[in-house]
């Protein structure tokens, strides 16, 4: 049993964690009544995707993708004294990190706009609870 679990989950542990986080975030985004909580869910959802990407770029025993000042792969990595093909395995994949820098920035920007919308809604309606907002709108426009 333990061996089976290790085979299915152990090698993919990060991916399982990211799925759990993503499901939590998505659930909160859809089901929560409070708009701010919805946005928290959205942030968790986006962060889960960041975890996925960063997990893609990891290599076992590798160090951060910064070379030394002569352009060599840092010597403390495990594979430094072998050929260039293998030596590259001593440095983590930089591409997912670059992509996620973008995704983080996008997430922050979206969250900022969303919070400002929530604040504007609060200014106009006096509430950030979705059901109260719906009731308010219904009372304004009875025909929908």
């Amino acid at each position: 049993m333990a061996e089976f679990l290790w085979k299915t989950i152990g090698h993919h542990f990060n991916f399982w964690v990211y799925i759990v986080l993503l499901m939590l975030g998505l659930w909160a985004t859809i089901a929560k009544n409070n708009l701010v909580k919805k946005l928290m869910g959205l942030s968790i959802f986006q962060s889960a995707i960041i975890l996925l990407y960063v997990s893609i770029g990891t290599k076992e025993g590798a160090t951060i993708p910064i070379l030394d000042h002569h352009g060599h792969i840092p010597s403390e990595s495990h594979h430094a004294d072998v050929g260039p093909e293998i030596a590259a395995h001593g440095v983590a994949n930089p591409l997912p990190h670059v992509l996620m820098l973008t995704a983080i920035v996008v997430g922050v920007a979206t969250l900022g706009v969303a919070l400002s919308l929530v604040q504007a809604i609060y200014r106009d309606f006096g509430t950030v609870e979705e059901d109260e907002l719906l009731r308010e709108i219904k009372s304004l426009h009875p025909d929908g």
């Binding site: 985004t29 959802f45 986006q46 979206t110 969303a114 907002l133 709108i137």
Partner: peptide
């Protein structure tokens, strides 16, 4: 329109 925009934002982001 603010509520519509927030809905749009959440769906669009998802």
């Amino acid at each position: 329109c603010k509520i519509a925009a927030l809905n749009y934002l959440i769906m669009g982001t998802v």
